[in-house]
Amino acid sequence: MFAVLIDQFWSLTIAGIALGFIYVLISLGYTMVYGVLRMINFANSEIFMWGTFGTVITSRDIFHYTQTSEPAKGAKLVLVLVTSLLMSMLVAGLTAVFVEFVAYRRLRMKGTNRLATLISAIGISIALQEIMRLLTHSRPVGAPRILEKIILTEVWGANIRLDTVITIIAAALIFFILERFIKLSRMGKAIRAVSMNEDAAKLMGVNLNRVITTTFLVGGLATGAAGFFYITVFEYTKFNIGFTMGMAAFTAAVLGGIGNIRGAFFGGLSLGLLEVYASAVLGTQWKAVTVFIVLVLVLLFKPNGLFGEAVQTTRA
């Protein structure tokens, strides 16, 4: 039973960390919006899905790579990758702002209760998914290979591959930048102020609408970056991939303590690792079961998730 885990431990760990970082970035989209609005952004899964198409469109339609073309090299490689990343972030960021405008702001202005925006978010997520389904004729879309998956070196029997290394380093970097932005910038401080006490923040002169829009934008940028890494690693997307990834990332956010940025980081990483270990030891059919048993156990002892206290105290 544990033979696979022992034999392939380092390969599994590296794959789990790479997957975990993708979860981290998507769960930022959930956790940031929750931190400010105290509401789950159910459209975040579809924002991620739209983000994956940003990368596909860049490599396929702007740089004209096809399934059979050679992977890019040198300066061109960097150019295509960076453009794809920015494009995915842009697409997802704009989609998130659009969601905020359509599904949240209008209802918020009318002073509806929270559940109404929850439903309108679900509604817009269905719309986003259906639009993509129609645009792609319900078909899966393969992304051309831009980055050759070179095996850099072998560590303890595990292949260290270029795409996983780039994913781990770049995703960690993006997370770090966003975290600093929230911590240090003027806007970041405003976001945290609204998160702590909305009314007090308003009285201090914080422009609430601008803060909320920025929060959606930043969450969307992180989710879009996740879309880019997802395509780089898996080279595949479809109109309905959002649901599974969104569900996992949401779980990661809850595991870490939703509303807390550090929580998203540790929640995402532990979920990625947990998923691959559970699949390898018990069989992939037990993946979801294991994940949710762990989630229930964590919530049993720490009801606010691993890093959840901060939110609860500020709220009370």
């Binding site: 696979v4 034999d7 390969s11 595949y236 991939i241 998923e275 691959v276 270990y277 699949s279």
Partner: peptide
């Protein structure tokens, strides 16, 4: 979409 656990099993 992530088949790494299955691939680990195949290798083992």
């Amino acid at each position: 979409t992530d088949f790494s656990p299955t691939i680990a099993k195949i290798k083992t």
